[in-house]
Design a protein around this nucleic acid. Structure first.
Lengths: 342, 342
DNA sequence: TTGTAGGCGTTATCAT
DNA sequence: ATGATAACGCCTACAA
């Protein structure tokens, strides 16, 4: 390994001078600077990040802790975080597949001394537990519902999104709506269900307008739920699955039964994954800009590190209603801004 | 910040003893060890990664440099790398959005002293250029075609996969096959096109069996290409798009023209993205296990670091032919192993 | 079994 | 403008 010493010796200067060249270059005479740079390049020297971090007390790295990496959701998320973080000259340390709270805590411990701040997304069902404690590291929690102990958090407007979707369906004339609910103790699912009830209430519709069937966010559960709804009386004219995987399952079930979508039954989803826009049967979804959400979380952490404007508290990421206008024409989606819910 | 000193003082031992407790714990008396652990927990101490790295000369981190993070491809890739890397107790430092070679080189320089090894995927069109040089860091290149200067690389069996698909289509009775080609100077696209010609040659079919239309790997280009093919004479009975995005575009075009898939025209793709399996019109694809590819790259790097069995050179990741057996039944895919191509 | 001390590569402080 | 030197937090011979 070639160190700052080698460069100093070769250039006939002290290591302090070499260091200055690589940091505040102005403080060095032009000739010296040029010579040092030349030697450094010739020797293939570049500063040692770890050693530098030790003395400067900053790693220029943000840690990202995720429950999993499956599907496009996380790639979008990482993309957003990566983008925001790199814009400020930071690196991104990713740690994933943490199924429970103990693993998250150990991942956080492992990151001590390696990162300047943390973005943490907890596994489902672990949201409402003991608050995250990160010592003196800035930490931003991502996803789920807002809860006590959140100093900083970025969450999705699950409730507003579901409410907007129900209002949209009602405005199309649907008065009997099948909702495929999510897993128990899943805060996203709970929030979305609350939004559904809000929407029905807004429209002045009663309990009989809602046909609720349980699901578990899997494609298969959506398939089963939709099949069950077809046998209901009265049969719904619209199906709203509380995530996209279930919506896809529902579409398969409807086609298997020869139901025309959306002429006979409209299908709507809640966008965990951008994939839905490629589906062939028209699917209206509540769209969440995952990438933007990741970027916001990163920006928040960076703000605590003195980069950019400061801020704190819980921030809610808005959702957008996406309606497919035409079929058979790739990319022909147009966004519809949700009606104001004030 | 709470350091090893604090723990030592509080526990009434030397810092050497505390250090030993956290490393080779056996060399410490049971009582001492227990006391130290207790104090450390009470104080919330955990070793400082950076400082430890400096002296041990290992960061326990693998760097992953990617051209982009868009779509499910990269999330699958990261998942594979992360999995392999964590299994050996390593961290993952991700750096992305490197559009050209200069950015890749600078990302590599920035990672010096922060990682023990590198997995690098070059941007398209940059594959055949100057070899990557990483100093003494183990480096594994990912994707594209094998080329000179590759000490270690993991590449996809693009050619074999495309060949297998053509043989499959021919075996179904197709003698006129439309191929939607990929972007110029894209080594993946080139390799796949070669495979197509191999397959036709295997089947003893001549040039007139092939209808080649250019695309650029985008959904829109697949849409246009398929529409063009419908007007060809003789019209193909099967369309093979050299990536999935184009295959999806082709499906849209066929439906817009009222063509029945696969009864009138069969459609096949090449799987960059797992998404394809959720599509409604049956789509046969050459499937690449991206996640496994990432894991292999990571494993290779780790092997140079002394973890696991050693190995080097170019490794080719096989592909699998995926045929949809039935419609309307989610998850009803079954893999077909490609015929031996020896 | 435990403590002492030197050093990992760099930056910051204080001289010159 | 430049140089000598003490940290940064930790690990590891070597000594006790």
């Amino acid at each position: 390994m070639i160190t700052i010493r080698d460069v100093a010796r070769e250039a006939g200067v002290s290591i302090a001078t070499v260091s200055r060249v690589f940091n505040n270059a102005e403080a060095v005479a032009t000739d010296t600077r040029r010579e040092v740079r030349a030697v450094a390049t010739r020797l293939g020297y570049s500063p040692h990040g770890t050693a530098r971090s030790l003395i400067t007390r900053r790693t220029a790295t943000i840690g990202l802790i995720l429950p999993d990496l499956y599907g496009e959701f996380f790639s979008e998320l990482i993309r957003g975080v990566d983008h925001a973080v790199r814009a400020q000259g930071y690196h991104l340390l990713v740690s994933s597949s943490h199924a429970d709270r103990a693993e998250v805590d150990s991942a956080m411990a492992l990151m001590r001394g390696r990162v300047d701040g943390l973005v943490v997304m907890l596994p489902e069902r672990q949201q409402a537990q003991v608050p995250l404690v990160s010592g003196r590291l800035p930490l931003v929690r991502l996803g789920g519902a807002p809860h006590n102990g959140d100093a900083d958090a970025i969450v999705v407007a699950n409730r507003d999104g579901a409410r907007a979707m129900v209002r949209h369906l009602v405005s199309l004339g649907h008065t009997r709506i099948g909702v495929i609910a999510g897993a128990d103790a899943n805060s996203d699912a709970d929030e979305r269900m609350s939004g559904v009830r809000d929407g029905l209430e807004d429209a002045g519709l009663g309990e009989d307008a809602l046909l609720r069937v349980a699901g578990d966010f899997s494609e298969a559960s959506g398939f089963r739920a939709a099949r069950e709804m077809l046998r209901a009386d009265p049969r719904p004219t619209a199906i709203f699955a509380l995530n996209d995987a279930m919506a896809i399952g529902a579409l398969s079930a409807l086609r298997a039964e020869g139901v025309n979508v959306p002429a006979d039954i409209a299908v709507a989803g809640f966008d965990d994954i951008p994939m839905a826009q490629f589906l062939d049967p028209p699917l209206t979804t509540v769209r969440v800009d995952i990438s933007a959400m990741g970027a916001r979380a990163a920006t928040r952490v960076l703000s605590h590190l003195g980069n950019g404007p400061s801020g704190s508290g819980v921030e809610i990421v808005p959702t957008t209603l996406m309606v497919r206008r035409s079929c058979g024409n790739p990319g022909a989606w147009s966004p519809t801004i949700p009606e104001s819910l004030a």
